[in-house]
Simulated scan of single mutants.
Amino acid sequence: MRKSGATLESVPELIVRWGAHLGLGLEARFAPSGDEEAFPNRVAVAGPDASFLAANRGAALDALQFLVHEAQGEREDQKLAYLDVKGARLFRMQEVMAMGQFAAEKARELGSHTLGALSARERRWVHLVVSREAGLGTESEGTGTFKPVKVFRK
């Protein structure tokens, strides 16, 4: 583990300050995700310029989140801040977890079901949902950044 820098509690103020340096009017606050195990420490970013962060499939938001994680110096999910603009990431978490639940039902019925290519965080959400179901397992398949997830009966 690297030496810690910014504390989790200081992240909203850090985002507002960095946004101001870039000429962006941002507000940031902690907001519950409804499933703290899957989406811990959600920081809702709002303000007149927040939509700029969500443009281009959230590329700027991903970059800002990367910088926040670097400033925090942590690597444990439960200690890192996760940024969200207009609830887009929260919605995606709920969508992927519903897909995982659907795949679990199909795997119970058919023996296995494979979901299409997902990012690492999305795959984690599927693994988490399925781990909450008795008698089922998951496995990421293939190589690369985006991989399919197979859900199967044990």
Rank of each mutant, 00 (worst) to 15 (best):
Q78G: 12
K150R: 15
A71R: 11
A44Q: 13
F39N: 03
V130L: 07
V68T: 06
V129A: 15
R108F: 03
L115P: 10
S33A: 09
A120Q: 13
K86I: 01
K3Y: 09
A107P: 03
L8M: 06
V96M: 11
G137W: 05
E139C: 06
E9G: 06
L118V: 04
V129F: 09
T138C: 12
L53S: 01
A63S: 09
A55V: 06
R108W: 02
V11K: 01
T145M: 13
L22P: 02
L24P: 04
L80C: 06
S33C: 01
A60G: 00
M99V: 01
R92A: 08
L64E: 00
N56D: 15
S140I: 09
E105I: 06
T138V: 03
G142P: 08
R29S: 10
D77G: 00
V68C: 05
S33V: 01
V130T: 07
R153C: 14
A71C: 04
L14N: 03
K3V: 14
K79P: 00
V45G: 01
A38L: 03
S140C: 05
T7Q: 09
A104N: 11
H21L: 10
A54Q: 08
S131P: 03
H127I: 06
F102E: 13
A63P: 02
A117Q: 14
D35C: 04
K86P: 00
V130P: 02
K150V: 08
T114G: 08
D77F: 04
E109L: 12
K150D: 05
P48S: 10
M1Y: 12
R124K: 10
N56G: 10
V151F: 06
A38Q: 00
V16A: 05
Q101I: 02
E27N: 08
T7Y: 02
R42D: 02
G47I: 05
S4A: 15
A134D: 15
A60E: 06
E133L: 08
A107L: 04
P32A: 11
V11L: 00
A98I: 12
S140K: 03
R132E: 08
L110Q: 14
